[in-house]
């Protein structure tokens, strides 16, 4: 068994839960699923960057010695990914919030319901004008 089996299991659980939530109808569940997925993607990156057992962090010695370290590049990529993930997640949050305030919808069913403001019934009424 490898050291990385636990990482694979973690990725499996996170993706399963994330996708399951993302496929829901309620906005908040979709949002939670999205948050889990963005974390899961980062875990995939760090996991495939190699087993850290017995290695040092990305900070080299004062004389520049860098023996037996982890790979700093994936970490740098994840660092930016976390921050961008935050930006995108906040956009999604605000978007869902706006949908709620505009349409009064907190789920896909309400959003696409025919009677909702901007829904099929309202559209048909507008077209008749």
């Amino acid at each position: 068994m490898t050291n990385q089996l636990e990482a694979a299991l973690l990725v499996f659980v996170l993706f399963t839960a994330g996708i399951y939530l993302c496929l829901s109808r309620r906005f908040l569940r979709i949002l939670f699923g999205f948050l889990i997925l963005s974390n899961a993607a980062n875990v995939v990156l760090i996991a495939i960057s190699g087993d850290p057992t017995g290695r040092g962090s990305g900070t080299v010695d004062a004389d520049g010695g860098a023996l037996n370290r982890i790979d700093p590049l994936p970490q740098a990529l994840i660092l930016t990914a976390i921050v961008i993930g935050f930006a995108v997640a906040s956009y999604l949050t605000v978007l869902l919030y706006r949908l709620y305030t505009d349409r009064g919808a907190a789920s896909m069913d309400t959003l696409y319901a025919d009677e909702a403001p901007g829904g099929a019934v309202a559209k048909a009424k507008e077209d008749r004008l």
Partner: peptide, 12 residues
């Protein structure tokens, strides 16, 4: 969800 999890986990 489980299928996607399997793919990603296996990839790891």
């Amino acid at each position: 969800g489980a299928c996607v999890g399997l793919i990603m986990g296996g990839g790891v």
